[in-house]
Amino acid sequence: MTLADSFLQALNLLFSGDSQLWEIIATSFAVSGQAVLLITPPALLLSFVLAYGRFPGRKLLITLSNSLLALPVVVIGLLLYLLFYSHGPLVNLQLLFSRPAMVIGQMILAFPIVVVMAHSHLQGGDRRELETVQTLGSGRLNMIWTLFVEHRYALLAAVLAAFCRVIAEVGSSLLIGGNILHYTRNLATAIAMETDKGAVSQSLALGLVALLLALGLQFVVSHFRGSGRVE
């Protein structure tokens, strides 16, 4: 079978309404969506504190957040595996090879991405905005809310970028999710498995879905980021 044949077969599979394929896509969205939704409020809050706060250890926290970006996904998976496996300290939680475990892994991956991207946007801002909000009578919570609303597009772009990153990760999901059909199989783990089996068309179909998904989300991110040039 040529690559072109495989590609056509992949398109056919994609638009034939194959229930297993769509189930895998749904699992990917559910797991990654949960992970990103759960980390968004604390990550944005931390980015705000790092950008506007004055406290000892702030620079250390920034360095730590930046360093976490370089942590290999498979290492996150391995560490969680060691926590959850049959001799691990958290075995009683019975999380190994479950969706919650995958969510936890993706949360660890997504958290520093949102913190670093949101913080780097906020730190480029202007102290006048904080002072204006303070002088116009905002309390602490209202001040944070106002500044989030003012920077909503850039912050949303950070969240979407994190989503794009975690939905495509395979290392952690495979190690702690286990790629169980109808439960923990997602796009990335399914692609890895189908390629191993030699089912190229299935693998390509899944790859196409992942690509379309990534493209769609990147268009959304680009839209929120603005024109991408200096105005």
Binding site: D126, R128, E129, E131, T132, L136, G137, S138, G139, N142, T146, E150
Partner: peptide, 21 residues
């Protein structure tokens, strides 16, 4: 401020901000 920072809103929304607080 000498170069005021205005909210990314309309003129009337800017005026309303403090009153809402």
């Amino acid at each position: 401020h000498s170069q005021p920072w205005l909210f990314e809103r309309t003129t009337q929304s800017n005026i309303a901000y403090g009153l809402q607080r």
